[in-house]
Design a protein around this nucleic acid. Structure first.
Ligand SMILES: NC(=O)c1ccc[n+]([C@@H]2O[C@H](COP(=O)([O-])OP(=O)(O)OC[C@H]3O[C@@H](n4cnc5c(N)ncnc54)[C@H](O)[C@@H]3O)[C@@H](O)[C@H]2O)c1
Ligand SMILES: NC(=O)c1ccc[n+]([C@@H]2O[C@H](COP(=O)([O-])OP(=O)(O)OC[C@H]3O[C@@H](n4cnc5c(N)ncnc54)[C@H](O)[C@@H]3O)[C@@H](O)[C@H]2O)c1
Lengths: 251, 251
DNA sequence: CCGATTTTGTTCTCACGTTCACAAGCTCCT
DNA sequence: AGGAGCTTGTGAACGTGAGAACAAAATCGG
């Protein structure tokens, strides 16, 4: 998202090891599919098999894998364990990443209780909150700690990833603190656009947005041929008559 | 995702009302930005203002809005309330959509407790689970009901959107039940690739994948110039010697 | 009423992503 | 050993998305 892209204009320089962002987003899916095959005792899989398991088409899968190198065998397919290791290494989940979660409310609790992270390359090292009533509460084998301890924890555990599950209001402030403390990757659940300096990656998960995208398609399904072309707007008051109150945002 | 796209090859037929998927995904962001401006008492905003609030650049924002129609005023900007209504109408959130949540564990509880959906065009009409111990539990003003009641609820409340927060194992089965009951849009939190018939839209939210994408970039930051080009693979056993166990997946 | 100023809506170009199609390479069978 | 049969890896075609740039439209001051 916020990566400084220094790509030269020439033909796609492959040796430069720049994997397309769209491919990066699918590698974890392949990794999971491979784990599934591995658990089923399958040792070799063709691109077709893998593609089915990952829910993509096989051409895309082959092209994606080709960015990592030539790890398959023509006429045979891919060795599941070997490919799994290669993808894990490329993503960087062969060793664990330390993660802090900030904001231990509804969502923070759910995340803290979730066991799926540990098995996928992540280790939650601290649950932080600003609410004194929460501090000290035990969740699983962890304890909620004071957000003020952030800097120490980041330094002590070499934390590079932070998860924000506070309300929208304090999210930017929490984000700034995380960045100042040295966190360089942030996963944000609060429904706000966070701004971060260059070099810090941010991803957001927004359930309302997901639902609204579904709603858009849903609407088109049901109204397929029934709606009037322009569903009649309500009185368009306030466009030409109002004394333009704002004109600038926030500034 | 799974929409049957019947697009003809000619020049981009605008009257056909096909809004690019990338734009659809941003409309909810604009909607939220507009709501924020509105709450701040700002009545008019330029594309530059809006773009800043939404975290995109202004050219993209203008182009996105142009797919909906000409709702701005040159030299002035956009009327916040008016544009907000137009986007809400386009997305389809001017009236509420009924939603069921299936699997009231850690995550299901968090979602059930979340108040943000109601204010954004969605109404949770039922919390469903298969665990008898959970059925009857009250969460806010709702009660967990038996998953067996699904069909009745979908019919009674015209539910078109389902949220799956069960473990990965039963997710496909739950999905099939939802589809059979008439649900045509699904938001899936379980870490599996669900397969659905044409006409059903599916979106997934996968936290492990988000973290892994962050980890990939994180790895590239820290190892920027320090890693050996090929970090030395472990013994590549089992590629040429093993008696190809599988060769097919699941079939 | 007119020109300066502002800001939209749109066109054009380039970059990125997806899919097709096939040569290259591997295994197995005869 | 040689050919048949698969499956990978990739070049090339196609489609979609992003951003720059600008003409068209609106306001405002004089
Ligand atoms: N709960 C959901 O299902 C859900 C769904 C979608 C989005 N979200 C978003 O996720 C975020 C969290 O949701 P939630 O339901 O868990 O909220 P919550 O109110 O239950 O929890 C928020 C927590 O953050 C803590 N907090 C507040 N300010 C803080 C600060 N400055 N520093 C550290 N901690 C602070 C609070 O003490 C509280 O424990 C919200 O932004 C919400 O919009 C939640
Ligand atoms: N909790 C998290 O933070 C988190 C994070 C990432 C992903 N996930 C995924 O979200 C899903 C839910 O996670 P969770 O932590 O809430 O799990 P959980 O085990 O706490 O809850 C799952 C719930 O689903 C119910 N269930 C099981 N089978 C069912 C069926 N056939 N029909 C109806 N209900 C059924 C169970 O009774 C349980 O209440 C999982 O797939 C998990 O991998 C969770």
């Amino acid at each position: 998202m916020t990566r400084a892209s220094s790509r030269r204009p020439g033909p796609p320089t492959r040796t430069e090891r720049g994997i397309p962002e769209a491919t990066v987003a699918r590698l974890p899916v392949y990794l999971r599919a491979l784990t599934g095959l591995s658990d089923s005792g399958i040792a070799t899989a063709s691109s077709e098999d893998l593609a089915t398991a990952a829910g993509v088409n096989s051409a895309k899968l082959r092209k994606d894998l080709s960015y990592l190198g030539s790890y398959g065998t023509r006429g045979v397919g891919y060795d599941v364990e070997y490919l799994r290791y290669q993808i894990a290494r490329e993503i960087g989940v062969t060793q664990d990443w330390a993660v802090v979660i900030v904001g231990i409310g509804n969502l923070g609790h759910a995340l803290a209780n979730y066991s799926g992270f540990g098995t996928r390359g992540f280790r939650i090292v601290a649950l932080l909150d600003a609410d004194p009533n929460l501090i000290g509460e035990r969740i699983g084998d962890m304890e909620v700690r004071d957000f003020a301890e952030l800097e120490d924890i980041v330094k002590a555990d070499r934390v590079s990833i932070g998860v924000i599950t506070t309300p929208a209001g304090p999210a930017q402030e929490v984000c700034d603190r995380l960045v100042a403390a040295g966190v360089t990757s942030i996963l944000n659940f609060a429904p706000v656009v966070l701004s971060v300096p260059d070099g810090v990656d941010i991803r957001k998960v927004d359930l309302s947005i997901e639902l609204q995208i579904l709603a858009y398609h849903e609407q088109r399904k049901s109204g397929e041929a029934g709606l009037p072309e322009v569903p009649e707007l309500p009185a368009m008051n306030g466009l030409t008559d109002l004394p333009s109150v704002g004109g600038g945002v926030g500034a």
